[in-house]
Design a protein around this nucleic acid. Structure first.
Lengths: 222, 222
DNA sequence: GCCTATATCTGACATTGTGTTAGATTTATT
DNA sequence: AATAAATCTAACACAATGTCAGATATAGGC
């Protein structure tokens, strides 16, 4: 959790597992909804607090009750995406079954999440450019995968399943490729073809790490 | 040339092939120098016209004599880098000699340029986030390579040198990888190790396109 | 239904940086 | 010295931010 997002908080009436959201929870959700709705169609650079809060149906001052600034809001949106990506990546990381198959499943999940939340990834990476703290959050997010992937590669190298090479630079490059590709393909309308994107990433990852695995199905392109 | 950069221009005293720069040429160069100097160490988000022109030794108003805004300036800086990259990429594109060797040379040149001008690439890609016109320029820059690479792949596929697959998505992914990797590695201090970056890119590109080529030298990492 | 804490609203403010302009002044060139 | 080009100063309007005080509304417990 990135902690960037939230300012002074008041009592936060936690009425048990209330089926209904408290007033402040609803307001907060309305702001996040409005932001998602906006960013699905328009770039972060055009987002202003005033317009956002008009959509959210509250006053500009209220925004600052819930977020320090727009970058804090973006950090919150990123947190939402994190989970989906982390769990989607499990098949390969979990190290059960055929590694190449696991990698394939992980990539498929990554592309699925990317296609759904790509606009958030784009907005966060755009916003990170303008704010040192958010930039740290964003790079921490990607950097975490750098380490996981490098370690995963190293383990299969120890088993002789992957050729011996220094894994960390390769991991970094592949992860940047994924991030940039998802953002390019799904960061804004019009969306690219999911299958084509998946096929490309699969080809590159598998060729690099498990070159003896036959590339399934769409060998001839989509 | 991106045309974004320049505003109203006056007479532009061209005194033949003058060995010395005219006054306006010197001012313009001073601005660009100051920008490069700044961006080598600090991110684009911290660049302001006032501070830039203090370093350049001219008044704030003068800036607007030469550039429409900071994004225009960035477009100009990008133009400088373009050339180096395009010529560096020749070996593979030119299609003489062993393709895998050509690719290797092209990648080496790319990494060399990246290590030198990476901070400009980072600054431009950061700035592109904030300005629709510059964003177009930046994406056009990368998109141009997407097409070149896709065509180059298609040609070797026709010769049976590269496995058959739909080239454009792969080209896009590999190019995004290169851009993001160079920016990550060399976009700001501290700089990454050139050799390690080159080895990683080489491995990925060659595995994907020419998998039967033995990976030279640093197979075991550096 | 009342009361109180919580949340919100309005309207204003100072701040920062942008891009433009007018008119005076410097500098280069011939 | 004369002229044109380049620069300077100083001011302006503008957009957006983040903050604040005080008035007002609203939810939920009693």
């Amino acid at each position: 959790m990135s902690d960037i997002g939230s300012p002074r908080r008041t009592h936060l009436a936690v009425t048990g597992l209330s089926p209904r959201l408290s007033k402040s929870e609803r307001t907060r959700a309305a702001i996040l909804d409005a932001a998602r709705e906006f960013l699905r169609l328009r770039p972060f650079r055009e987002l202003t607090v005033a317009e956002l809060m008009k959509s959210a149906g509250a006053s500009r001052a209220t925004f600052y009750q819930y977020f320090n600034d727009l970058h804090g809001l973006m950090a919150t949106l990123l947190d939402e995406v994190k989970e989906g990506i982390v769990t989607g990546a499990q098949p390969w990381f979990s190290e059960v079954g055929d590694p190449a198959q696991g990698l394939r499943h992980s990539l498929a999940a990554l592309v699925a999440v990317g296609a759904e939340k790509g606009f958030i990834l784009r907005a966060v990476s755009d916003a990170a450019t303008q704010d040192a703290r958010l930039e740290d959050v964003w790079e921490g997010f990607i950097g975490a995968f750098d380490e996981l992937v490098a370690e995963r590669i190293a383990r299969d190298q120890a088993l002789g399943l992957i050729a011996p090479f220094e894994p960390s630079a390769v991991a970094r490059a592949l992860n940047r490729m994924d991030a940039a590709t998802l953002i390019q393909a799904f960061g804004r309308p019009p969306m690219a073809d999911r299958g084509a994107v998946l096929a490309a990433l699969e080809r590159i990852w598998l060729s690099t790490l498990y070159p003896d695995t036959p590339l399934s199905g769409n060998v001839q392109g989509r």
